[in-house]
């Protein structure tokens, strides 16, 4: 799978709620589509997304074939301390794509 694209602020104030945007390139083959040979194209999607901060999951998504190709997910996180975000996308074959981002709490 491709390298996921992320937009995470580098700094935040203590207690601030930040918005994170994520996008990963993936065909998200729904399993309901016929290929050029007239046969159904087998389902192959990303079915799970998780976002953790300092090792604790704070957001996740269970994804179904109704989500568009190159799944884009936007969500929020409340920042109380410096730390590292871990993002993970899992596909139907069990392949996990991971990404990381760091954030520091700026003195207010």
């Amino acid at each position: 799978m491709s390298v996921p694209r992320l937009r995470v602020p580098k700094t935040a104030k203590k207690g601030e709620v930040i918005t994170i945007k994520s996008l990963i390139e993936h065909p998200m083959e729904s399993g309901f589509r016929k290929g050029p040979d007239g046969k159904m194209v087998p389902r192959m999607i990303i079915n799970k997304f998780t976002a953790s901060f300092n090792g604790k999951q704070f957001f996740g998504a269970n994804i179904q074939p109704s989500v568009s190709a190159n799944p884009y997910i936007e969500f929020d996180a409340k920042i109380d301390a410096d730390g590292t975000f871990d993002f993970a996308w899992t596909d139907d074959k069990g392949v996990v794509t991971k990404a990381q981002a760091k954030i520091t709490v700026a003195a207010a």
Binding site: V17, I18, F58, F59, A61, V67, S68, P71, Y72, I73, E74, F75, D76, A77, K78
Partner: peptide, 8 residues
Amino acid sequence: SGKAEAST
């Protein structure tokens, strides 16, 4: 999560 808000 801070906010109960998400987009896709």
